[in-house]
Every structure is written in structure tokens, then in C-alpha cells.
Simulated scan of single mutants.
Amino acid sequence: MGATDTQPHISRPARRRHRRRTPPGAAPGTLVADPEAQGSSISAIGYDAGRFFEKHDLTVEDVTALKGTAGTLWVDVTGLADIALIERLGALFGLHGLALEDVINVHQRPKFEEYDDQLFIVTRMAPEGRGVETRQMAMLLGQGFVLSFRDDRADCLGLVRDRLRRENGKIRQYGADYLAYALIDAVVDGYFPAVEAIGEDLEALEEAVILHPQEGQIHEVYRVRRDLLDMRRAIWPHRDLVNALIRDDSPLIDGRTRVFLRDCYDHVAQLMDIVETEREIASNLVDVYHSCMNARLNDIMKMLTLIATIFMPLSFIASLYGMNFDRDASEWNMPELGWRYGYPFALGLMAVCGLSMLVYFLRKHWIGLPKTRRRRSRKS
């Protein structure tokens, strides 16, 4: 396998920059939709220990009719283009105007805020595949309901829905606070595959840099470092969010749910440890890359210097016998030119000088015999 075969190809989608759409100086709570936002749709899941229903493509009137018909109601809004629908739904559940503004502006960092008898939570869902673009999910936790808003139809909440559909699931025995925990926990656990994917890229880069350092690899190293920075920026606030929920004395969060929130906090801490470790490896890999490239350059310069040194006496001999002194003017002028074996003697003298210097360099360990590099086997 050639050196180029070990070069990892790490592709990342272009980062989408979030811009705040609310004009500067606008009144608090002003809602301005993103032109690129997807169309809004509503789905709902209602359940308790003995009942369960799931409905899609609902209207605000349908949600009004469903409110209060089940022990816990989960209303999920996908797409944030329809401002009027979101305002009506927010009014139905008593969502504060400032919270509505945070729902529409999807660049929020994970946080937790308390409004009267409701808890407003913002999380950022992990990217899919090998991307680094996170997506916002805002939640409103109230008495007997959870209202969630997502700007993207892709999510990591499929397992939560499956657990709700199972009649004997533990989640069906708890209230809305446990549902909110389950959603947060699913968001946090969704970061593990993304972080592990970056770790695999980093491992491939580490092997390539050590075995076959090339100029283009430094760009991939910096790209991985930037991805890890984005991951850290997304994961770090979740620790403060979960910790605030654990310490909050709101009656909306039961003591049994706080035990599970502590487990979620441990997951966030594990993610942070992994990200920090990989960031340190990436930073050290930059130094390793520069050291390998410098060592490679030093080897090249040393070899060129030795070659030039070997040819110095050969050049002297060649230039000496290239002087055209007239032998008729003096018997001391280039006597070897008239000798029968003068030309073989000059070539032999050059060979002896070159080989003698080469043997001397080898004994001094200034140069070494070429060694076959064996690629380190990777454990599957």
C-alpha cells in the first residue's frame, strides 16, 4: 500500500452560520422567521399507565381538543416557518413571549429558564453522520405536558417514541418531567456517535502522520481540532443545564426524576472527558506533525550534504586533471597525461576517495542503512 493510501479523507459539510433575524432595537419578544426555515407541522403523543395515542399533522384546534385528555401530553412542533401557528400554540400553553423569541431564533445555547409555573429548556441535538452542525430543540415543561419545537425534521428522539409505544415501558409510569428528562438524555446520548466518529478520524490521522507525514495532513488535523471545538461548544452548556435542573426546587420535577437527571449529568461529563482528551491528542498531533516533517527535512538535508561532501574531492580531482598545462614546457606539467594508465588511475582514485568517505560516514553512524517501515497493525 502506497503512502497516499494512508491519507485519510475527512469530509465535512459547510458550516451554516446562524444569523439573528430580529432587527437591532426591536421590542423583546419580536418574532421573525428564518427565510430558510422548514414548514411547520404538529404531532402529539398522549399517554398514561393505561392509555396511549399518537397523532400527526394536527392543527392548533386539534391540540386544544387533546389538551387534558391524557395524563401526559407531548406536543412536538417540527419546522419554524409558520410564526402565526407558533404564536397560537404558545398562547394555548402559556409560553412566555421571551421564550417564544428563543424558540424562533435557533442559535441559542443550551439553557434552562423558569417562567411562573413552567420550565423552558433549550438543547442542541447532535449532528448526524460526520457533520458538526448541531440543531436546536426547545422544550416547555408544564403540569402534565411537554411542548417541543425543532427546526429540523431529523432528530434523535426515535427511541423515546418507541419506548412510549410499548405498553410496559417505564416511561409510561412517570409524568411529564420524566418525559422531559428522556428527551434531554436522548439528545445527550446522541453526541456519543458523533464524538466517536471524530475520534476515528483522529486515530487515522495519527497513524498517517507518524508513518507517512505529508504536507496536506496538517489541514486535516486543524479541521479535526475545529470540529472538536464545535463539539465542546455544544456539549459544555448541557452540563450547566442538567445541573440546574437537578438543583432546581420546582414542583414540576419529581424527586425520582432527579435521580435519572444525575445519570444524564454523568453522561455529559463522560462526553466532556472524551472531547477534552481528543482535543489534547489533536493539539499534540500538530507538534508531532511538525517534528516528523522537520525530521524528514533534516534527513533530506543530511543526505544532500553527505552527497555533496563525497563529491567534493572527486570534483577536486576532476578539476585538477582538467587543467591544460603544456607538458612540452615542463616535465612537471601534468605528467599523468602522458601515462598509459593515467585515465583509469584518475577514475580509480575518485572511486577510492568516494568509497572511503562512505565507509567513514557509516562507521560514524552519520548515515544508516535503509530500514523497512512496517505499518502498525490496528486492532479491529
Score class of each variant (00 low, 15 high):
Gln270Val: 08
Tyr321Asp: 02
Lys302Pro: 06
Cys292Lys: 15
Leu314Arg: 06
Met293Ile: 13
Asp328Glu: 15
Leu304Asp: 13
Ser319Pro: 04
Gly338Phe: 02
Gln270Arg: 15
His290Trp: 10
Arg340Met: 14
Ser291His: 11
Ser315Ala: 15
Glu331Lys: 13
Leu261Val: 02
Ala282Pro: 04
Leu314Ile: 11
Ile281Cys: 03
Glu278Trp: 08
Tyr341Ile: 11
Phe325Gln: 00
Asn333Ile: 00
Asn324Met: 08
Ile310Met: 12
Ile274Phe: 08
Phe325Asn: 09
Glu276Lys: 09
Leu297Trp: 09
Cys292Leu: 09
Met334Asn: 07
Lys302Asn: 14
Glu276His: 09
Trp339Arg: 04
Glu336Gln: 09
Leu306Lys: 07
Asp299Ile: 05
Arg262Ala: 12
Met293Gln: 11
His290Thr: 14
Arg296Gln: 14
Ile307His: 09
Ala282His: 04
Asn294Val: 00
Asp299Gly: 05
Arg296Ser: 13
Asp328Cys: 10
Asp266Gly: 11
Trp332Arg: 07
Ser319Gly: 15
Arg279Ile: 14
Ala282Ile: 12
Arg327Cys: 05
Leu271Arg: 05
Ile307Tyr: 14
Arg340Tyr: 07
Arg279Phe: 09
Asn284Asp: 13
Ser315Cys: 06
Asn333Gln: 08
Ala308Val: 08
Pro335Ile: 02
Leu306His: 08
Glu276Ile: 13
Leu297His: 14
Val286Trp: 01
Ala318Arg: 01
Ile317Leu: 15
Val275Pro: 01
Lys302His: 06
Leu320Gln: 05
Asp287Asn: 06
Thr277Trp: 02
Pro335Gln: 04
Cys264Arg: 03
Glu278Asp: 13
Ile300Gly: 11
Leu261Gln: 01
Thr309Phe: 00
Ala329Ile: 02
Met303Glu: 07
